[in-house]
Amino acid sequence: MIICRDLCKEYAHGSARKQVLRNVNLEIRPGEKLALLGRNGAGKSTLIKLIGGVEMPTSGQIKRHMTVSWPLGFAGGFQGSLTGYDNARFIARIYRRPYAEIKAYVEEFTELGAMLKMPVKTYSSGMRARLAFALSLAIEFDCYLIDEIILVGDQNFNRKCHIELFEKRADRAMILASHSTEIIRESCNRAALIKDTVLTTYDSVDEAVALYQAL
């Protein structure tokens, strides 16, 4: 279970301030697949970063009673100057997992072959997505935070993700920020819509998607 209570996030630059999220209350139960909807800049990534502990809320509290992945997205989590293998080694070390296991899983899941010996900054966004998913699936979390990145893969990758994430790990929770209503309808069982800094949750995904499309 993840509980967010009265989360507020404000960014300040010089004297300019911007309120991104206001009094967000949210609970994510084990196994729940929550879709995060909202227009560009609505605060989806910010909320995911707060839940992932990457950034700190201006006020409010987050309690994590299950293990939460780092936000899987286009930025962050990797060090561009290191190779895929070095990144895997780093992650194995800080999450205390045997490197051999992680390495084998990454090689099999990503199918990147010799590219794993190249710096991550030379990867395409699809290749990064493969590596990010492989590493987080190899570590095993109770809740996966996915920021857009699920869309960039090719057919083969999407199929693999589907099997690994939605079939083999159907018991895990997930928060998925995406603009693809198709993927959301297919894979989520609850939805939240962020509009004007306020988050509203809906038990019906279709209802939330309809509201989102009307924005």
Binding site: G52, G53, V54, V68, W70, P71, A75, G76, G77, F78, Q79, G80, I91, I94, Y95
Partner: peptide, 10 residues
């Protein structure tokens, strides 16, 4: 080093 902060234990 902000990309490292994606991992909460760092």
């Amino acid at each position: 080093n902000s990309s490292l902060l994606y991992h909460r234990q760092v």
